[in-house]
């Protein structure tokens, strides 16, 4: 409980989290777990961005895998076909996807609820089909190979440990920027839009501008994650960026707890490592995943992190009551 409330004051939570990330490698014995940690970090970056859009602003996206994929493919293609350095790949991807997301975001974010869900889902599928069909660029379904390993400013990140720390730097940077955004005029405007678009606009909040703005920002996070992924895995196949992955991302946000950045990281960590736990179930993996989704939504609609927090609080108040009664009787 204490630990949870420390996490509430963002900056001390941030420092604690940084220390945790720094020390984590010393507890990891095996390369395979490094791999999982790196993927968790990459997914966390996307999910933090998605949470800003979905959890804080209340706008759903079922197509975020596409922007992740665009980040990965743009840097991958530049690297594999024209030997561009990774940093150039990142910048080009950020600019292209930023402009694209801006142009798409204007008409898309006028939609609400299920319509917005279907529009973003459609976008995701269209981009996925482009990954598959633009053979000459993407390598099509058989995949894109020959992506150079990550090197920045003359340093090559070729060990799992160094890549882990690289991902951590980006994760912490994204997290810090997001904490700042959330606790600012912008963050309040976003949550106001979530609460009531009409009330927000009556107070002068330019609703469509802020919605498109946060949409673009969240796609830029996804692009950064895609860039980290491409230079880590060095092989891209469209199936990593399909509809199911978009669903998985939104599930991470929802299960982790909508509108909580720590929840986003928690959700990403849980769902990324879940398949590792579910290996015990083998063939049952998909159905168990579906079942968990349903159960969490029914019993902890505020997400697991908040759900657990509520549970702990309830336990504590029960204990207190119990103690009080005992002291009264004695």
């Amino acid at each position: 409980m204490r630990a949870l409330s420390i996490m509430r004051t963002p900056y001390s939570g941030f420092v604690l989290f940084s220390i945790l990330l720094l020390l984590l490698p010393f507890t990891v014995a095996n390369d395979y777990y490094f791999n999982v940690l790196i993927i968790i970090g990459i997914n966390s970056i996307i999910v933090i961005g998605l949470d800003l859009l979905v959890g804080y602003t209340g706008q759903i996206s079922l197509g975020h895998a596409a922007f992740y994929g665009l980040g990965a493919y743009i840097t991958g293609i530049l690297s594999a076909r024209w030997a561009w350095p990774p940093i150039a790949g990142l910048l080009v991807a950020l600019v292209i996807v930023g402009i694209l997301a801006f142009l798409i975001g204007i008409p898309t974010l006028k939609l609400h609820g299920h319509y917005l869900a279907m529009a973003t889902l459609g976008l995701g599928i269209i981009v996925f089909i482009l990954f598959q069909e633009l053979n000459f660029l993407t390598g099509g379904p058989s995949g894109l190979v020959g992506i150079a390993p990550m090197s920045l400013f003359g340093f090559t990140f070729d060990s799992d440990l160094s890549y882990y720390y690289l991902v951590c730097v980006f994760l912490l940077a994204t997290l810090l920027l997001s904490i700042n955004v959330v606790r600012s005029r912008v963050g309040r405007a976003l949550r106001a839009i979530h609460g009531s678009e009409i009330a927000a606009s009556v107070l002068g909040v330019n609703v469509s501008r802020f919605k498109v703005g946060i949409f673009v920002l969240s796609t830029l996070y996804a692009v950064t994650a895609g860039w980290l992924y491409a230079h880590y895995i060095a092989f891209l196949s469209p199936s990593s960026f399909g509809f199911m992955f978009s669903i998985k991302l939104i599930t991470m946000v929802v299960i982790g707890s909508l509108g909580s950045l720590w929840g986003a990281i928690f959700g990403a960590a849980l769902l990324t490592s879940l398949p590792e736990f579910l290996v015990v179930f083998e063939h049952y993996e998909t159905s168990v995943f579906g079942l968990i989704l349903i159960l969490v939504m029914i019993f902890m609609p505020r997400g697991l992190l908040r759900g657990l927090e509520d549970l702990v609080r309830k336990l504590i108040s029960m204990l207190r009551k119990d103690l009080k009664e005992r002291s009264l009787t004695s």
Partner: peptide, 17 residues
């Protein structure tokens, strides 16, 4: 709506599984 979307998606994954 978000909760309902997630829950029917969960159901579809479950049934498919």
């Amino acid at each position: 709506p978000i909760t309902l979307i997630i829950i029917t998606i969960g159901a579809s994954i479950f049934i498919r599984g």
